[in-house]
Design a protein around this nucleic acid. Structure first.
Ligand code: NAD
Ligand code: NAD
Lengths: 251, 251
DNA sequence: TACCGCTTGTGAACGCATGCACAAAGTCGG
DNA sequence: CCGACTTTGTGCATGCGTTCACAAGCGGTA
């Protein structure tokens, strides 16, 4: 899985080496936000904006300006005091930190409702995540192209993932199949998995899993609805001020 | 615990009132995990399991046992020392905390690739999130039923959301339309929004937004790939220690 | 060149979340 | 009824992430 970018004798520039050392120290939460900043900056760049202040960028990204500056400081000092940041410079530095200077081949497993949507989605290839393989267990689906890629049978997963150097596996199968699919991806050398099935996957330490769980998202929203409803109720009815165990909740 | 003899003649039981007071104090991160516990517990319940220890449950949920116990302690003390937790009891308490004792009507806006998948998905209604309305701007889609629900035109959004008491709005439109759709949902009284469009939505304080951003998820995975690759590289090569950060950008 | 106003970068304080470790509280066998 | 054993619930320490506040640095201006 070495670098596939062959320019120059050395594989990394000094700036890259510096970035990479820094990468270790970037908080997980900041990484997620950097991805958002990158999208906002890309949009600005396309609109012809060349410079931006932390205040403007933080507004557009929906975060605190101080937090944004701290996040950017994790990747280095590329701003100009009194002026702001050069959009292009920031874009290229964030891209490098996020490892977007190389493409990450994506495989989608489970070409049902969700798998179809993902395979058809045009937003990934343009951002460095080409979908290069689709898998399903259903014989009727095998061979049919979805979003331009033919569906392969799940049994071919190891060979094809190796061959196409898949680095991200997306699981969109029913929950009972998810763990087995995950195991197959892992044994095919895939080290990153994005899981849509509402199942907790067991993986070795060297594999990174992120889950997208819509039911959980909705339940969190539900929790906030309930909390809000309570607040309204206790305000209108009158709060006796006593929680359980005599804890005083509100003044 | 759970004392408080009832002067709760209203719609809430004493236990509910106690829960609701606690809800205020539950950390956001714990709420997300409670939703996961709930799913695991529901599965156990269906499999006929009636009791579970924090150790077992934490394994199944993929978290630390101490963290699980702390999370559960936020909602009250419903375990039995030396034994564990009663599955049904835990399920009902978590459901109540998450506000799942009432149904939350869901509207999906943007019936394209993703919207179709969401509308067809059978996993929501069974969990208390019935999809009761679909909207799109495309006249060709209006009137066609998807997943059993006919698509309505976006212009009807206010009336229909009010009428069907929609509490969660799901945005699956292209990015440029997302803010405008969001504004319409808000003015229709929807206070919870789940956003799939890669856009930062601006909403009033009383509206809760959660976003699902697949590109961001992939970029986080990409970051970890890069980090891992660097570690491997720096172990084999060693660090040159030069911290000089020239503004070297690859042409 | 010297000054002024603006914006970055970051040290330091704070608050939230995690994980440990153990007393309290229960069960069960005898 | 007792004592050994099991598991919960939680105080506490630790670490991570966020926020504040301000000195340092830069461009513009006279
Ligand atoms: N559709 C949604 O909107 C939605 C929302 C939330 C979560 N999910 C989750 O995403 C997953 C997929 O949902 P869906 O609606 O697309 O389901 P689906 O039933 O439409 O599609 C599942 C696909 O997986 C294939 N499959 C089954 N076993 C397989 C295996 N062992 N290997 C490879 N492929 C296999 C099936 O043939 C089918 O094509 C489910 O776990 C679901 O819970 C979906
Ligand atoms: N499909 C995916 O897998 C995927 C993945 C990640 C993110 N997304 C995001 O989800 C969103 C939807 O993706 P998609 O692939 O379903 O797109 P799509 O183009 O297939 O569907 C968008 C739908 O929204 C409708 N629409 C457009 N403007 C509207 C408006 N003002 N009001 C109501 N409806 C409107 C269109 O008629 C269309 O039916 C996009 O923002 C996309 O970036 C999709």
């Amino acid at each position: 899985m070495a670098s596939q970018r062959g320019e120059g004798e050395t594989t990394t520039t000094p700036a890259e080496a510096a970035d990479k050392e820094r990468a270790r120290a970037i908080p997980e939460a900041a990484v997620a936000r950097l991805a958002v900043y990158l999208r906002v900056l890309s949009g600005m760049s396309e609109s012809g904006v060349t410079a931006v202040s932390s205040e403007e960028l933080s507004q557009a990204a929906g975060v605190n300006a101080a937090k944004l500056r701290k996040d950017l400081s994790y990747i280095g000092s590329y701003g100009t005091r009194g002026v702001g940041y050069d959009v292009e410079v920031l874009v290229s530095h964030i891209e490098r930190i996020l490892g977007l200077t190389r493409n990450h081949s994506v495989a989608v497993v489970g070409i049902g409702n969700l798998g179809h949507a993902l395979a058809n989605y045009g937003g990934f290839p343009g951002r460095g995540f080409p979908v290069t393989a689709l898998f399903d267990v259903d014989a009727d689906l095998v061979g049919i192209p979805v979003g331009g890629i033919p569906v392969n049978h799940i049994d071919e997963i190891t060979a094809i993932c190796r061959e196409r150097e898949v680095s991200i596996g997306v699981i969109a199968t029913p929950p009972p199949a998810a763990q087995s699919v995950c195991d197959r991806l892992v044994s095919a050398g895939v080290q990153c998995i994005l899981n849509f099935a509402p199942v907790v996957l067991q993986v070795p330490d060297n594999v990174e899993v992120r889950k997208v769980d819509l039911a959980v998202e909705m339940q969190i929203l539900s929790f906030h609805v309930a909390r809000r409803a309570d607040e309204a109720a206790s305000v209108s009815v009158g709060n006796n001020g006593l929680g359980v165990d005599g804890m005083v909740i509100r003044p």
